[in-house]
């Protein structure tokens, strides 16, 4: 039955019953009962109205993380010395690194495939996040991993690689692997006018991901948003700007890889990184037949080996 029948629900002050009722106590009792009845009736009348009201009033967007976008934290057992932090790209999820994570786990590393805030839930959630939110969510998870092991290597793709560079400019990271690092974004007409994206997002909120890219993502089994929130795309440019300023402070060994047909990142990114980083060791590789989703390269075995060997070699 409806909650309206439960009189105890209304938290009124109880009037202490007098063993010999006076006129005053009888009056209060009857008054209290009348109030109960009125409220119960109102409750019945208001419930359907409230239901209608709740159904039309603005509701929050969905922040629930989809099961296929969950993070993975794998511990090999014992007391491992090193860990690998894996940071996915814009609009993507940790799944992209699952296979690499298994390899590192077999080699005895703690593996943490993290999810950047706003990802894996809903496009509206991503649209409501800022670069600072992305960075802080990555930073917090880095600290969690750092508490478990002495040394941390980072593998980052796209937005993840930008966050990895910022982290490396502050914290003592053991080595970095940057995949499709968008530090120098292609000057397409849309990207030239990127400063308009945020005001434009008031009218056009999302821009759909191309059919070809969706097909590729499906082929690789990667859960990614089907449309990009323009407001968040502008955030990508902002974090790239901040990262460029931080490059001279990065001192750990860096391996940077870009696809030769990357639709967003210019190949000259590699030169920019080389000339600005203060690293002891810098290595590059251009993946053949690969777009921004670098794992689609025809030389995936080489890509996998390079990522794997780079971390192993710099863990000595």
């Amino acid at each position: 039955m409806s909650r309206g029948h439960n009189m105890k629900e209304f938290n009124f002050i109880d009037i202490v019953s007098d063993p010999s009722p006076t006129l005053l106590s009888t009056f209060f009792h009857s008054l209290r009962n009348s109030v109960y009845v009125i409220i119960s009736v109102l409750h019945f009348l208001l419930l359907p109205l409230m239901a209608t009201y709740q159904s039309i009033w603005p509701k929050g967007y969905d922040r629930t993380v989809k099961p296929e976008a969950e993070e993975f934290y794998w511990h090999p057992g014992g007391d491992p010395k090193s860990g690998v932090l894996m940071i996915h790209g814009f609009g993507s999820t940790p799944q992209i690194f699952r296979e690499y994570g298994k390899q590192f786990l077999e080699d005895g590393y703690i593996v943490y495939g993290i999810r950047i805030i706003g990802h894996g839930s809903s496009e509206a959630h991503l649209a409501d996040t800022l670069p600072i939110d992305w960075y802080l969510s990555v930073r917090d998870k880095y600290r969690e991993l750092q508490a478990q092991c002495e040394e941390v290597h980072i593998v980052g793709h796209s937005l993840g690689s930008l966050n990895a560079l910022i982290l490396a400019s502050i914290y003592p990271i053991k080595s970095l692997v940057l995949l499709s690092c968008p530090i120098k974004i292609r000057r397409t007409p849309l990207f030239r006018a990127h400063f308009l994206l945020r005001p434009l997002s008031v009218v056009i909120k999302y821009w759909p991901v191309g059919r070809e890219k969706r097909r590729k993502l499906k082929e690789f089994g990667i859960h990614q948003y089907q449309k990009n929130p323009l407001k968040a795309v502008e955030g990508l440019f902002e974090i790239a700007e901040v990262t460029r300023e931080r490059l001279p402070k990065v001192t750990c060994p860096v391996l940077a890889m870009v696809g030769d047909d990357d639709e967003y990142v210019e190949l000259s990114t590699l030169d920019l990184l080389e000339s600005n980083l203060s690293v002891s060791e810098f290595s590059t590789w251009v993946a053949p037949n690969a777009g921004h989703l670098i794992i689609e390269t025809s030389e995936k075995t080489i890509l996998d080996k390079k990522i794997h060997d780079w971390v192993i070699d710099h863990d000595q």
Partner: peptide, 20 residues
């Protein structure tokens, strides 16, 4: 299979309000 906490989800089907 899933362990998701439903937040911000409507308690009504989408057609309730237009029909009302």
């Amino acid at each position: 299979a899933t362990h998701v906490v439903k937040r911000g989800q409507s308690r009504f089907n989408w057609w309730v309000t237009p029909v009302n």
